[in-house]
């Protein structure tokens, strides 16, 4: 029996909405502990990729494997089990409008009938992780865009999923807040060894995720360092999508050396 190294695997996956081909025989692998940064313009199938992993959409052809399990033909009930291994951060947070921050973060645990005392400690730990302990009683409409995304991340982290999917979590945010979101992604990648797909079209995100890492010193403090002589990041790879095709797959250094006019234009 061959050992499975992939948290997520796409094998020749195609999907079309009517005449419009969204993904065309896409194959990719996300290894355990790896972050795959998916880049590309609007409408190139980036978010569709994440929806396919979660089973919110089904491919027209090809196979999708999550944690070594072929989930392509799973029905909604079977997907519920698979989804418990995955956390999803939606573009605008997708928080439940009618619930305060606490209940939003506690949602998954409440559905699993976890005792309230356990829920409270988990929720507070997650909110501390995203630095939003003070917003616990606020309603989603009282939060800023960045705070909503951070609550979305806290909610996605409940249940300690080993796979996290980020759907443009920094879109429309100011550089400082976007940096905070990227730092959260770094913490999850480097300290929790979470596998992830990070969809973005912002070069600033790419710079942070490809060149920085986080470590914890002896005193327990978090230190963000730049990739350099001391360490070379191998747990972050890039994919560039264009019109449903993968036109690049590799490291950021390789991407910068690409001659493809679309990639050159994207990186300019």
């Amino acid at each position: 029996m061959t050992k499975n190294f992939n948290a997520i695997e796409f094998q020749d996956v195609s999907l079309a909405f009517g005449d419009r081909v969204v993904l065309n025989r896409v194959s990719l692998q996300v290894r355990y502990g790896e972050s795959k940064i998916v880049m590309g313009g609007s409408g190139t199938g980036k978010s569709t990729l994440l929806r396919l992993v979660l089973g919110l959409l089904k491919p027209d052809s090809g196979r999708i494997l999550v944690d070594g399990e072929d989930v392509t033909d799973y029905n909604e009930e079977q997907m519920m089990t698979v989804r418990s291994k995955i956390g999803m951060v939606f573009q605008e947070g997708a928080l439940f409008d009618s619930l305060p921050v606490y209940d939003n973060v506690a949602y998954r645990l409440r559905e699993q009938k976890v005792p309230e005392s356990t829920i409270e400690s988990v929720v507070m730990r997650m909110l501390r992780f995203v630095d939003l302990e003070d917003a616990v009683e606020k309603m989603p409409n009282e939060l800023s865009g960045g705070m909503r995304r951070r609550v979305g991340i806290a909610r996605a982290l409940v249940g300690n999923p080993k796979i996290i999917l980020y759907d443009e979590p920094t879109a429309g945010l100011d550089p400082i807040t976007a940096r905070t979101i990227c730092e959260l992604a770094l913490k999850l990648r480097d300290l929790e060894e979470v596998s992830s797909i990070f969809v973005t079209h912002r070069l600033q995100d790419m710079e942070v995720l490809a060149n920085e890492y986080v470590i914890r010193d002896d005193a327990g403090n978090l230190i963000f360092e730049h990739e350099g002589d001391r360490l070379c990041l191998i747990n972050t790879k890039f994919i560039m999508l264009k019109d449903g095709d993968i036109i690049f797959s590799g490291t950021d250094e390789e991407m910068r050396l690409e001659d493809n006019p679309y990639i050159r234009k994207f990186l300019a």
């Binding site: 929806r51 979660l54 919110l56 909604e76 009930e77 519920m80 989804r83 418990s84 995955i86 999803m88 939606f90 573009q91 605008e92 997708a94 928080l95 439940f96 409008d97 949602y107 998954r108 559905e111 699993q112 909610r155």
Partner: peptide, 18 residues
Amino acid sequence: GSMLVSEQIDAMRALGTD
């Protein structure tokens, strides 16, 4: 409808609720 267009229904499914 509002829940659907603001992806709350998808979030619900992603969090394991039918």
